[in-house]
Design a binder for these strands. Structure first.
Lengths: 357, 357
DNA sequence: TGTTAACACGAAAACGTTTTCGTTACGAAT
DNA sequence: ATTCGTAACGAAAACGTTTTCGTGTTAACA
């Protein structure tokens, strides 16, 4: 077992100073051609690599970005991570992930842990519990400490930072409009509780699309699912709720669901009740994941382009980090600006499959 | 914007030395009650938190573990990550993830990057390309450097380290035996190319189950999919291959597929060809993901317990890391042992759903 | 009164780098 | 012969900690 070699060891072996070794390896012309060659050869032989931690300490930056998400076993979030990792990697950064598990406390703890020098900036999506409590002090605190934050998808106006979102509202409008165009007369909505911002926005989109077409919204046609407690038999409860919902509203011939799971489950229940899809009932979901693609019939969905969201988020963050670097070099202290945060909107796209005519 | 406060700053403000502050905060009884209180109060007021990087450098350990996986948008892998993150978090570690994207080069680069001080150990699953090239020098090199490695799922005998695997062989035997018990007379296998070890093992299990029941394997009933190039229209190709396969073997009344996607697709194609499931054809897949659970009919699968795999891997790694700590303290240099690596086998479990009778 | 022990604290090294600022030596210029 | 410039290198500080080893002060004891 040969431990990693350090500058100091090289210096001792070659009987020069640490500074000389460091300079030689970085190709400084302060050092003679001769010693430079010697040092480089020796370093190569022993496979010298600078210690990241030492460099991080010296430079006071880690070249890693922290990701905080509510859940990782989730197609959308893992897609976003993939996007983040991709550009991070390309631009010389690592990613370190923390899972909040939809819990406020875990979110806070995770952020505090990483904020103490482990990362240069955050890309995150807010946990449900945090949204419910509306307590955003930890975000503002880290921003206050000079650590940039980029929020995606589940964002909130109370925090001043760059944001990358999907146009949930418009996406919903498009979806519902499509159902109307395809001759649905009684379109139901299956959504979440209002405190989840994306659920709320998609609900608003549903309402707007109806009103755009002169259709009056019927509160009975809206089913709000409370998934705050993620219990074991969540799926069963979901199915039952949808079933009673469908039984009480026999006229439904179109469904817009704010996520994939609700849409798939709606299709399953509908089939069980004797509807055939898309003939008797058309369904559109939100989020284009594996379920939509591989369901039978394939589910028409509003795609969020998770990877793009991740890529944009990472770019935004790294841009800001490197802008900071520049500022330090120039002596112009930029006190006024700083507030021009970007809100980037990723366009949704409807992917038509077999669940619509 | 108030930057993070350091020991030195506290020391200056309170007009004591850095050492005093450090000791006071750690509750050393070397420091008087009086100053301890003063320091602690000040630290609390300014929300002092020690800098992780500095501590890492000092202790020569980072308390973070590196995860290298081929793909993150994948139910099994993200489940494993969740497991790793869970125990890592509980035991005071962070996780930093690198994606190999099934590429040998990215795997190597990612590992080298992290091995230079960023992490204390690795949990990883080998990329397909690496398996194909059979070049494992980077694993052995990092182990040689004294960095512990735990491999899961896609493991390889050429590398000496702890391993956590699923009993692929036995799982396959169980699945195929179940099909036989349920009166399938002509059981097909849909699998991957042999260089993917899990595919190979599951194939062997299939063959063994048949032979156990005195059934002769028919090569025509085995379909090997080449998914080495993950092209855009992969899905279409897959469907076509399965369709011709089914058309050429009309007697098939049972299918064992080595992953979820193949199983789901098989069901889809079968239905298209007029089979009804499970009456005319029963199907069992491997890996219990979202697809299996939400497909209609629900897919009977061999569950791998990804989260458990992740948890065990992390525990194994951290155990070894902390054992090293102990060794450093005791003066007994343990030169002989070191070789007792653990191979942990996670039992599979068949989850019955509607795709079998 | 002189010795000792406990107490409270500070100086400095160490982790592995990078970088600034000397310092030495030597050849060239005055 | 003195000054100057430059090439080639080393010392030391710095990043933020922790920890070992002093050191000075005071109180207790003989």
């Amino acid at each position: 077992m040969k431990r990693k070699i350090t500058l100091k060891q090289i210096a001792k072996e070659l009987d020069v100073s640490v500074s000389t070794v460091s300079k030689a390896l970085s190709g400084s012309k302060e050092i003679s051609e001769d010693t430079t060659q010697k040092v480089k050869a020796f370093a190569k032989l022993y496979n010298y690599r600078p210690n990241n931690i030492a460099i991080s300490l010296k430079n006071r930056k880690t070249k890693t970005i922290g990701i905080i998400i509510p859940e990782i076993v989730h197609h959308f979030f893992s897609t976003v991570i993939r996007g983040i990792e991709r550009v991070a990697n390309r631009r010389g950064y690592n990613v370190i992930v923390g899972l909040s598990n939809e819990s406020f406390t875990k979110e806070v703890i995770n952020m505090e842990l990483l904020a103490n020098g482990s990362i240069d900036g955050f890309v995150l999506s807010i946990s449900k519990e945090t949204l419910l409590k509306q307590d955003y002090h930890h975000f503002n605190a880290t921003i206050d400490q000079g650590i940039p934050v980029v929020m995606f998808d589940r964002v909130v106006a109370e925090v001043d930072c760059d944001k990358v979102i999907v146009d949930d509202h418009k996406g919903a409008v498009k979806a519902v409009s499509m159902l109307i165009d395809k001759d649905c007369k009684n379109i139901a909505l299956i959504t979440t509780m209002d405190y989840v911002s994306v659920g709320r926005l998609r609900t608003q989109g549903y309402l707007e699309a109806l009103s755009n077409h002169g259709i009056e919204a019927n509160p009975n046609m809206i089913l709000k699912i409370d998934d705050s407690l993620d219990v074991e038999n969540h799926l069963e409860i979901l199915e039952n709720e949808i079933e009673t919902f469908f039984r009480m509203n026999k006229v439904i011939d179109g469904v817009f669901a704010v996520n994939e799971l609700y849409a798939i489950t709606a299709m399953k229940v509908a089939r069980k009740l004797g509807y055939s899809i898309p003939e008797d009932m058309q369904v559109i979901g939100f989020t284009d994941g594996v379920l939509s693609k591989h369901a039978t019939p394939g589910l028409t969905t509003v795609s969020q382009h998770g990877q793009k969201i991740g890529e944009q988020s990472a770019n935004l963050l790294i841009d800001r980090l490197e802008a900071e670097d520049m500022e330090e070099d120039s002596y112009i202290v930029n006190t006024d600006r700083k507030k021009d945060f970007i809100k980037m909107v990723i366009e949704t796209e409807i992917i038509e499959r077999e669940s619509t005519k």
